[in-house]
């Protein structure tokens, strides 16, 4: 399992297309969204904490698409390359190898994501003289981004078992826009709910949402305590 984790990580993290696609989408984010300025919208409170939350919010808008799509060809890769015969004839065990592969490939695919996020955090900490931002960045990444990536990784490993990777990618992108990005006012969606993989709810636990993060009549901005209570009983408090 450890061997598979190591080698799958190494093979994925050295894949040039991984970095190229991430870089392209990242460029779009920089141009189209305030990733450079981290516009805080007149927020009052711990500015470093808020800035890291905004940075996370911007990155999770599009980078998870790259993450899911770059994972999609991995589950079937051994079969496609016809390495499975050799691997299956070793006493290593299929389940152990699958777990190792999942962990290794997901971690490797999250590396450019983490580089972008912590790179921004470092820049912010230096330029604004706020080293605490790094701590907030670590907390936000672990608590709000990683769980989403773990879920998306499982989705990207299960999906291509049923569908060809290209079909899965198309559906995955559709899912991402529908379930995580579009405003709830447009159509029924998972966006801005606890089922959204953007980790938005967890970020509400770290900082209150900026006024425009939650839009649409059904999803008003809510406070930290309200988010917590929603986590406990989703249909309850805060719907008014």
């Amino acid at each position: 399992m450890i061997a598979t984790l190591r080698y799958e990580f190494a093979m994925q993290v050295r894949r040039p297309s991984l970095w190229i696609v991430y870089a392209l989408v990242f460029a779009v984010l920089i141009v189209a969204l305030p990733f450079g300025s981290l516009d805080l919208n007149d927020y009052e409170g711990s500015v470093g904490r808020q800035a890291m939350s905004v940075a996370a919010q911007i990155l999770v808008s599009l980078l998870p698409i790259v993450y899911g799509c770059m994972l999609a060809d991995r589950p079937s890769r051994d079969r496609v390359l016809r390495v499975d015969g050799i691997l299956d004839a070793t006493p290593s065990g299929r389940t152990a190898r699958l777990i190792g592969k999942y962990a290794g490939v997901c971690a490797a695919t999250a590396v450019p994501f983490a580089v972008a996020y912590f790179g921004r955090a470092l820049l912010y900490a230096v330029v604004e003289g706020q080293p605490s931002a790094l701590g907030w960045a670590a907390l936000t990444f672990l608590a709000s981004i990683v769980p989403g990536l773990v879920f998306l990784g499982a989705l990207a490993f299960a999906g291509p078992l049923l569908l060809p990777p290209m079909v899965f990618r198309v559906l995955f992108v559709a899912y991402w826009f529908w379930g995580n990005l579009i405003p709830a006012a447009m159509m029924p969606t998972l966006s801005h709910t606890i089922f959204s993989a953007t980790g938005e709810y967890v970020r509400y636990g770290i900082v209150a949402p900026p006024p425009r993060a939650a839009s649409g009549p059904a999803r008003r901005p809510c406070s930290t305590s309200c988010a917590r209570s929603r986590l406990r009983s989703p249909p309850g408090c805060g719907s008014a």
Binding site: R15, L81, R82, V83, I86
Partner: peptide, 10 residues
């Protein structure tokens, strides 16, 4: 195996 495959990037 007869239809031997390898990882091309290793």
């Amino acid at each position: 195996p007869q239809d031997l495959g390898v990882y091309p990037d290793l």
